[in-house]
Design a protein around this nucleic acid. Sequence first.
DNA 1: ACTATTCCGGTAA
DNA 2: TTACCGGAATAGT
Length: 168
Amino acid sequence: MNKRIIPFPIYEQLSLSISFSHTDTSDIIDSIEYSHNAILPSVKNDSIFAKKILNELDCYMNDAKFQFSLACNIQLGTPFQQRVWQSLIKIPSGKVKTYGELAKELNSSARAVGNACRRNLFPVIIPCHRVVSASGIGGYAGDTLETQKGAINYLQIKQWLLAHEAVL
DNA sequence: ACTATTCCGGTAA
DNA sequence: TTACCGGAATAGT
């Protein structure tokens, strides 16, 4: 499994840490994490797939309407999580849904949907940031407006992504 | 026994 | 009338 750290210029020092693997037939992303690591990307020896990842993220930064074609290993999630993640992909850039709305479509509950979003292994590519609460912005990466657990202000990232996509 | 929720009833301004 | 709590209901992990 390969890993690639990509600067994600929402603000200085924010990066996307992307793990991926290639098989003989296909290339696939296994997980994506945010990080504050100032590790410089090593441009040499990049595989075709790594370059494709770089390129698609770059396209998204330039145009929020860009549609990713990167494959994500969605099977790493539970069956329910896979169902939720599949429907996240269908939310177009520039639109949002609430946890409750999504829950109704899936015959589930808002709380359970929030759970599955929190466990999303592929932030940005699978747009869990397009799910908000009925009353406000909802959470991101386990954080809520009230509680920030770690060093990264995830809600700020969610706000940025939504603003970039011209929501709000 | 936890959640990245939501809805409804009560209360006060 | 609106705005803000408190608590119950809810489904998945």
